[in-house]
């Protein structure tokens, strides 16, 4: 299994945002895509999730052109949690999570006993089991984010893409989510997430991909990537690198 870009350009309405990128993402890792606003990290993720087509070049999945891969098969192998989600009306939490099983069900969408078990398990894992009979539209933003996470987890894919999953969350929920993702990664899932917080990425992820102006600048372990040179070059920021006193991972502290 692998996800890669080959001379890939992606953009909107004729504007190229990701420019001729070559990138192979390592399998089985917890990967963060980093970079300043507008660098193309979310755009790249959207192309990997087939929300955006390639303008030129190709994205590859399992050695095949991702955009020609059978839709239903891809939905069993690669799941996306978009950044902003609609608020579906009149749908209960358990029904929404159950839609995560739709790539596996027959065309009428009837759930098997196993499907029901997986749905229940994912609701428990994300702490949404108690909310199962409530309407999604009546939940708080943070609760709703966890319900959507439960849905993509019910998709049971080896790869999981997340677009800034922590953006609208309180700090405690952010930490909780990062722990959950770490645990999923330990169970064998490859996780690729766009993050804003560099220190959060360095602490929880084991592979960082740094982009600037649509181009790949650095990739590798947090140790190798998170340096003052990188911060200066990519974010135009003067910063020192220290050790996180709790986890021992690198951490940046901004200079005046």
């Amino acid at each position: 299994m692998s996800l890669s870009a080959h001379q890939l350009s992606v953009g909107y309405h004729g504007h190229t945002i990701v420019k001729k990128m070559d990138l192979t993402l390592p399998d089985g890792r917890f990967i963060a895509l980093l970079g300043p606003n507008g660098c193309g990290k979310s755009t790249l993720l959207k192309c990997f999730a087939r929300i955006l087509p390639a303008m030129s070049g190709e994205a590859h999945w399992q050695g095949q052109n991702l955009h020609h891969y059978p839709s239903k098969q891809l939905a069993k192998e690669l799941a996306l949690l978009p950044q902003t989600q609609p608020i579906p009306e009149g749908i209960k939490v358990k029904d929404l999570v159950a839609y995560g099983r739709s790539p596996y069900t027959g065309f009428w969408g009837k759930l098997s006993t196993q499907d029901h078990q997986i749905v229940e398990q994912m609701m428990k894992q994300t702490g949404t089991y108690e909310l199962r009979d409530q309407l999604v539209s009546e939940l708080s933003g943070g609760q709703r984010q966890r319900v959507w996470l439960a849905m993509v987890l019910a998709q049971d894919t080896p790869y999981l893409l997340l677009d800034e999953p922590t953006t609208y969350m309180d700090i405690n929920h952010q930490v909780e989510l990062m722990h959950q993702l770490q645990a999923l990664n330990k169970q064998g899932k490859t996780i690729i997430t766009v993050l804003h917080d560099i220190n959060q990425a360095a602490r929880y992820c084991d592979h960082l991909v740094v982009m600037k102006a649509g181009e790949l600048k650095y990739q590798g372990s947090p140790e190798d990537v998170l340096t003052s040179t990188m911060l200066k070059e990519v974010f135009s920021l003067n910063a020192q690198i220290h050790r996180d006193p709790v986890s021992g991972t690198p951490m940046c502290v901004v200079e005046d």
Partner: peptide, 15 residues
């Protein structure tokens, strides 16, 4: 039904 979750989610679910 799946389309009610929005286009991005529907595509993600293999529609």
């Amino acid at each position: 039904n799946v389309l009610q979750l929005g286009e991005d989610n529907a595509r993600n679910l293999g529609i």
